[in-house]
Design a protein around this nucleic acid. Structure first.
Lengths: 339, 339
DNA sequence: TTGTACGCGTTATCAG
DNA sequence: CTGATAACGCGTACAA
């Protein structure tokens, strides 16, 4: 490894100075076409490769962005990763993965990495921001962080998000339009803003449809398949079970449908189910799941594009971009039984 | 940013040299407890943070590992990511994501990153190795690459893998034991080694069970839901359709089951289906899918652990570790119809 | 347009 | 045990 050729070697071979080599290789306009050629030729002949570490130290950048999620094995993130990766690599950035497992210390660690220059920017998909953390700011006073699909209030950070409340309303209205009167909501973990917004959308839609919400119609899960199962159990063990379910994410919807099947209830004949997220698998679930779709790849692209804008100082104030969702009607919802 | 304190500042404040500061902070034994304390105190007082870039340039490491997959949005990788991340971060390494999309140029790019020292090691989950690429070797002559769940023949690289052939045999024997005679195999893309091994397992098991394989019983897919659907269509459009399916991965199994449902065929009453992979969703599919489970988190951990062993020169020759798979019998398989 | 010389922030080597 | 100083490899004022 110590025999890697460096610009010094090229300089010697090409008969110029290291400065000229550096300039020639980075297409500076301050060098003649002829010398540039000479340098280039020497570089390829010597099999030269730029030392990225040295350059990064010199230019004070890392050319890396940090993508931080709560739980790396959540399938929801997959297409977002892809969108981010696509834009990042096109811009010459590498992608550093961060996984917090909702652990505060780990969150701090990633903020530290950003502050320490191990990454030039961060896409944050945990709804948390270490409270007392010294906020990173670049030269133009912007913080190179984009919050995606979560909301950090009063943070003055750039966000890319969806209208959770409106999407939830749309889902519930779909069920009401099918004639359902007893519509329950399996809710996400409750202190969280996303869950709250979806719950709020559910309640608003129910009110608009003139429907009551019985006391037990809002069981709280934690977005896992297992918890969807448990919430459905509670709902259908009770008297006055619902005929339709709006579930705060697809995984809990899968759990709920599993529980229904075990009880001999058919979807959608006996119970209609709407999910939220449109996981890659939802379209080929049996039955194919009616759900709210978010343009995840596009969200990833947008977040990374915004981050690049901040990093390159093309943005002077934190932007909030709202992405469009859509209700995908498949086979897990049907008209209410007319009994 | 330029006002970040550096060891020089600490040195000045603590009244020692930069060398001593460096030693004190890295717990070198070459420094008195007293000076160490003095330095530490100055460091915290000045709010010192190590400049990782500078250190990495100096020590010629990047403390990063590259995790390269064919397709970042394949849900199969999720738990592997997690296992790798867990071990990597415990060892102080950051995780760099690579996505090749089966593009040769991109593969080369990641090999280049490794060679250029942008990463100290690589976990490779594409079955490919740029043919003419200069092979990276560290001081001890080892290549810091671990191939996970793929096989690169004649490469002399460390591998962590499963016995695809044996697992496939187990799946097919399960179906044969249930009394099925007409068992078809939906195969993965065929030049690939994994697909070949699973196909080989299928054929061996069929031979052992004394069963024939009709000409059209080995349709070839590409691991996508869509292709599972198409293969099932071909199989059941034909005369002499099978009563059981061994599918090379779960996604194609989902596609196949979807197609069966559209044709009014029930699983498992009319057709039994066995998948391969045990995706997170497979247990709560309807019906819950019988499939081959791989210990994915453990595979990730093992791969990363092996990589660390290579990087830290604790390994002197490429190791091949084989992980255990198991057949998980759920509700998508049942006894053959006795008609 | 080119060359000289320095700085980026550490760690390692060698004297003392 | 500590200090001065040389790398690590590149980019860029500044001078020519």
């Amino acid at each position: 490894m110590s025999e890697r050729t460096k610009i010094k070697d090229i300089a010697r071979v090409a008969g110029v100075s290291t400065a000229t080599v550096s300039r020639a290789l980075s297409d500076s306009s301050l060098v003649t076409e002829r010398t540039r050629e000479k340098v280039r030729e020497a570089a390829t002949r010597l099999n030269y490769r730029l030392n990225v570490r040295a350059r990064n130290l010199r230019i004070q950048k890392s050319m890396a962005v940090l993508l931080v999620v709560r739980n790396m094995s959540n399938p929801f993130y997959l297409e977002i990763f892809k969108g981010v990766e696509e834009v990042a690599r096109a811009a010459g950035f590498v992608l550093l993965m961060g996984n917090t497992e909702d652990d505060h210390d780990r969150e701090v660690e990633y903020f530290d990495m950003l502050r320490d220059g191990q990454a030039d920017g961060m896409i944050l998909m945990t709804g948390n921001m270490p409270a007392d953390h010294e906020i990173v700011r670049d030269a133009s006073g912007m913080t190179p962080i984009v919050v995606a699909l979560e909301a950090i209030e009063n943070s003055n950070l750039a966000h890319v998000q969806i209208d959770n409340c409106a999407a939830a309303k749309q889902a519930v209205h779909h069920l009401a339009d099918l004639g359902h009167k007893r519509i329950a909501h399996i809710c996400g973990p409750l202190p969280e803003i996303l869950s709250r917004l979806r719950l709020e959308g559910y309640r608003k839609a129910m009110a608009e449809a003139g429907l009551d919400i019985p006391a037990n119609y809002e069981p709280v899960g934690n977005y896992s398949i297992q918890s969807g199962c448990e919430c459905a159990r509670a709902l259908f063990d009770d008297v006055n079970p619902p005929t339709a379910l709006f579930v705060a994410n697809d995984e809990m919807a899968f759990g709920a449908i599993g529980e229904l099947r075990r009880r001999g209830l058919r979807v959608p004949e006996d119970v209609s189910v709407v999910g939220f997220d449109d996981l890659f698998i939802s379209q080929s679930y049996s039955p194919p799941l009616t759900t709210i779709s978010q343009p995840r790849v596009e969200i990833g692209r947008t977040a990374m594009t915004m981050l690049l804008d901040i990093i390159n100082a093309r943005l002077s104030s934190p932007v909030v971009t709202e992405m469009q969702t859509s209700l995908i009607v498949r086979e897990s919802t049907g008209a209410a039984d007319q009994r």
